[in-house]
Design a protein around this nucleic acid. Sequence first.
DNA 1: CCTACCGATCGGTAGG
DNA 2: CCTACCGATCGGTAGG
Lengths: 222, 222
Amino acid sequence: MALPRAQRKDTRVSTQPRQDAAVARHWRTYGPLGLHPILLRAMEAFNEHGYHGTSMRDIASRVGVTVPALYYHYENKQALLTTLLEASMRDVLDRCRAAAAEAGDDPLARFRAMVESIALSMAHRQGLAFLDTEIRSLEPANRARYVALRDYLEHMLLDTVRDGVARGMFTTPYPADAVRAVLVMCQGVANWYRADGPLTPAQLAERQVVLSLGTVGARDAA
Amino acid sequence: MALPRAQRKDTRVSTQPRQDAAVARHWRTYGPLGLHPILLRAMEAFNEHGYHGTSMRDIASRVGVTVPALYYHYENKQALLTTLLEASMRDVLDRCRAAAAEAGDDPLARFRAMVESIALSMAHRQGLAFLDTEIRSLEPANRARYVALRDYLEHMLLDTVRDGVARGMFTTPYPADAVRAVLVMCQGVANWYRADGPLTPAQLAERQVVLSLGTVGARDAA
DNA sequence: CCTACCGATCGGTAGG
DNA sequence: CCTACCGATCGGTAGG
């Protein structure tokens, strides 16, 4: 019983090579999602009907396999959701970290790069970003791990904003609230952005950067 | 069959007098919710487990009645959600309109009052505001009505921001995106605000006003 | 014995 | 408003 489980996990990892490769390249580069077909279809179903509104039978029929085939690859429905959400947040986090590292120590350049990277993630990975509304359906332990990742992102951004305030480059009297506002603004992109709309991801990201600079009270904003 | 339905509707209206009375008083005044116990418990359940994750039996047991009793008062589960969401959005809209009217024609005063009223709604009516995450579970016709109300709020705010830009009081190059950002910032309050936390609703609202002024590039922001 | 599944069905619960 | 139920479908698992 223990051996098959380990082997299943190896199967999962080996089916997601593209995503990791794309992340390793550059934070502004987005390749195909590279998700296992089961995860991809689960994501689509969760986004259309929500976690509880999606049946394993629905996911199975989208993939074109039977329900037991789903349980062969993933322990249960909860595992599908938590795998998706964690993969999503880790990707955002990795790219944001890379963007910050590339930008260097200047708070303004750092803040711009971080917000750009987050906004790009929301546009390029909208399907994953939209899943954020389902965190309530995570079991406590899974939610705790997800929230820890999200808090880490928030702290990274807050450190930069506080540094910018200390150096007189940002004027907001409420750095913590401003950071929360910036992140919720970016998250909100997942609700309305359309890839076939008038804005490219890069244009969308630039607008988010400008709006975010205003929110933290950057001197040269607007 | 037609007579009982009409009687049910009368019952619903007659059980919600307090809320309307509170709204009529002043946009900064918030009394008790005054929702029918079934709606109140349904709201709590939807917020804890989501629409599809909530069973009618769960709601019935919270109220202390049987499942068929629920169907006596409301047609089905969908009616509970759409009634809650529409009541919530109408209240926000009414208060925002009152705030705008009281503020007069100056775009800055008008924008401040509107954002304050929306933020106050999010803090005082957090349980209703949080339901916004469930709009996906509305049937098309119900969602259309809700979205129309939300769009009206957005247009009210956008008209004010555009007026402010035209008069040189706001400097944002992206009024529509800024308004969307401001509204999503306010909506985000429902996710993290705690009534037993350090901020009163009034303090929370003032912070949201300051952050929002930065987002639209108000001259005297921050 | 393994893998990658299948057809059928489990105990309970959904909205009505 | 309750008791007594329905057709169907839920998440998950049986043997092979």
